[in-house]
């Protein structure tokens, strides 16, 4: 059974899976209790992506350096195709991401979202806020010394 979803929604979960900590993702995925039978459309392969920056932060692009990425594609029994694109070289992580991407297009979406994606999103948010809170504590509060020359 297929469900409807927007490209932005799919972009959201794929992005979350790309940066997820592998150990945590494995734990959540196993806790989810679903492991669909699927076929490889593209077995996991590790490769590089050239990351670009912009001159002066906003100008013309230039090549900064590569990062490692692992990708794969799976097909469920009903023909639903899932893609995994994850940072790093873990084939297991790419495989989990592809299966989750496929399931998120099926009737299992709500369950997977609750068991895997929501905890990942919350933890990512918490991690980002924790760093931002430490950064905020190192913000300089200037004060002006009164000079006695008036």
């Amino acid at each position: 059974m297929k469900t409807t979803f927007s490209a932005a929604d799919r972009k959201g979960w794929m992005s979350l899976l790309a940066t997820a900590d592998e150990a945590r993702l494995t734990e959540l995925w196993q806790g989810c209790g679903i492991d669909p039978v699927c076929e490889w459309l593209r077995p996991p392969e590790a490769g590089g992506v050239m990351v670009r920056g912009r001159m002066g932060g906003t100008g013309a692009p230039f090549n900064l350096g590569e990062m490692t990425v692992t990708r794969c594609a799976v097909s469920l029994d009903d023909g639903t195709v899932g893609h995994g694109y994850v940072q790093g070289r873990s084939k297991a992580k790419a495989a989990m991401a592809a299966k989750i991407d496929a399931l998120m297009q099926t009737g299992a979406a709500a369950g997977v979202r609750k068991a895997v994606l929501e905890p990942l999103a919350e933890e990512r948010q918490a991690k980002t806020s924790a760093r931002a809170a430490k950064a905020a504590a190192t913000k300089v509060e200037f004060f002006t010394m009164v000079r006695g020359e008036d």
């Binding site: 392969e45 490769g47 992506v49 670009r52 912009r54 090549n63 990425v69 990708r71 950064a135």
Partner: peptide
């Protein structure tokens, strides 16, 4: 090692204005 990796492509230029700044 880098030379053994297939090149999947090029990223979009990163937006440093959107950086989550530590410093």
């Amino acid at each position: 090692y880098r030379t053994t990796l297939p090149r999947f492509g090029y990223s979009q230029p990163v937006e440093t204005g959107e950086m989550a700044c530590d410093r």
